[in-house]
Amino acid sequence: MTVEGLRKYFPVKKGFFKKPDWIRAVDDVTFQVFKGETLGIVGESGSGKTTLAKLILRLIDPTTGKIYFDGTDIVGVSKKELRKYRRRMGIVFQDPSASLNPRMSIEETLRRPLIVHGIKDREEVRRRVLDILQKVGLGKEHMKKYPHQLSGGQQQRVAIARAIILNPDLVVLDEPTSSLDVSIQAQILNLLVKLQHDLNLTYIFISHDLLTVRYVSDRIAVMYLGKLVEIAEADELFYNAKHPYTATLLSAAPIPNPEVRYVKRFSLVRGEPPSPINPPPGCRFHPRCPYAISRCRTKEPVLKDVGGGHYVACHRAEELDLSEYTSGLWKIITESRVS
């Protein structure tokens, strides 16, 4: 799958006579997802990551841009044609209790995708529902239940089952573990990794939790105010972050180890993410960037290859050394382990 120059602007009405402002939720985003890999997308609220997820599945229409799925641009296709592609994509949302119809049994929830896509044979439907429930670690006893009778972890398993029951190629996971407890998070992460391996799935994994993203992803893309600022192989990004925003995120992540404390790494974090309405000119991060120079205020940086498939959108990518902010997290990721 290739995404090219994708843009989504939402109008914000300010008054009856005024021209609307535009929220540039996703602004000229280009990237590729390879078969069988997990592409992680990280960013804070307002970075456009959820809008991007909805765009990829064509749940909303892009303002401009192209989305190639297996060589076909699915932005221009007809409704009927789109249905064919829907079958090959699935989505899992953050809040499992909101993503399941409260008035639909688990069995019915899982049957719907099959029926919509023309699988009408009752025996086959039943067999596939049972099969998928088993794959996500649930069983026959859950079929007749309703979402509110399941725990959060089980609900998320059902949502995952619904996303993969049509044997899709691509699954978009929008913060699938954020609303779950730590001990349940691990169960779901294990399940996702196993399913990917068994069914040869391609994932787009969206999250604000850096540790989770690094765990599941092969490559990670960092978004800031609708723009892609850095994309690299997962461990490379954590070890060798080039964009000051990536370094800021990494340094702000709370580390579960009392030996390496915040306050020292903290100096990089400045200000709050500005609103995506009328973002700053030049590099959008420059007002919060301690390394900003005059060029950053006027000229928007583009994604450049800095070697080994590592792309950064920063004018000073080559000269900055940000490792002092990120090494703490890297050390914990690679070393700390309870025996």
Binding site: V182, Q185, A186, V193, R214, V338
Partner: peptide
Amino acid sequence: LMKCLPIGTKRKEQLYVIPGQ
């Protein structure tokens, strides 16, 4: 709880899980 955090593991390596709820 400490073991099931996705740290100190390789990517996509099986995580420790506290069974049940």
